[in-house]
Simulated scan of single mutants.
Amino acid sequence: MTDRDDLDMLAAEFVLGTLDARERATVAARRKSESDLDEMITAWEQRLTTLTDEVMPVTPAPELYQRIEQHIDALDTPRAGANTDSDDKSNVIALHKRLRRWQWSTALASAAAMVLVAVLAFQPAPEQGPQSFVAVFQQNDQQPAFMLSVDLTNRQMQIRPVTAEPMQGKSYQMWIKADSLGPNPRSLGVLNDNLKLERAALRDYDPELLKEATFGISVEPEGGSPTGQPTGPAIHGYLYPIADEGSQPSH
């Protein structure tokens, strides 16, 4: 490692705050007369200061400081039977080197954490396709009997009668069919007297499945199909995206 590398490391430690009070005061004094050191400190501040804007402050657990103090005390305690007169200097040098390695490791870890936060914070969100869809239920060229609107974000639906009207002794029942659901359609529910259906009827279905599914409304005996499958005349519809005017129908 060159002298310039050492100076750059010192600048990084100064900006990251891993120097002790005496070292920090020394570096602060040096930067006033050493232009290279001052430029390096400024460069590190520019690299890291903007990243800290995205980092929420976190208070360390109270026991963390206690563990650090205990570890330092253990390092400062001479081993039993050791020659303290001859070993004092080497122990101090070793401890200083170990502390410097810990400080630099902390600096690198802090920088890496801030870079990771920045990458995650500024990563562009993936493009999202249309989330609002509509289906029209009509027989041949007749006026639509029903319209279905679906919000895939929260899987909420709304069925609205257009020309359909309640029928005496009959009920409308809504169905969904998709390859992944098997060969038979599944009931989404029987429309009530106002020809409405629970908005959360699609809550158990994956949005991708809904985009490709076929929806149907059949005429059943009052209260719904007695067999669990459509028994009367049915009209079908598919979901078409409406959020993007350039989007093409799912079918």
Rank of each mutant, 00 (worst) to 15 (best):
R160S: 08
E198L: 09
R67G: 13
E198A: 15
Y240I: 15
S225Q: 04
I41P: 02
D73I: 09
R98G: 10
Y238A: 14
R79F: 04
A234M: 15
P57M: 09
I242P: 01
K89A: 14
A61E: 10
E45T: 02
V27W: 01
M114E: 09
R30T: 01
A21W: 03
V117C: 10
A109G: 13
D76K: 10
Q158M: 07
G169W: 08
Y65R: 12
I176H: 09
M114Q: 13
A12F: 06
E212A: 13
P230I: 06
T59Q: 13
T106N: 08
R160Y: 00
K32V: 10
F133R: 05
K196D: 14
A11R: 00
S33L: 03
R4Y: 07
A243I: 08
T52P: 00
R155F: 02
L209G: 06
D179A: 15
A107T: 14
K32F: 00
V15I: 09
D3M: 08
P124F: 07
W102V: 03
D85S: 12
E23N: 07
D206A: 12
G182H: 09
S225K: 06
F146W: 05
A74K: 03
V117A: 13
E45Y: 02
Q123T: 15
L108R: 03
M114S: 10
H71G: 11
T163Y: 07
S218Y: 06
P233C: 00
L197K: 01
T2I: 05
I41C: 04
P126E: 12
P60S: 00
L19M: 08
K196H: 07
G237T: 02
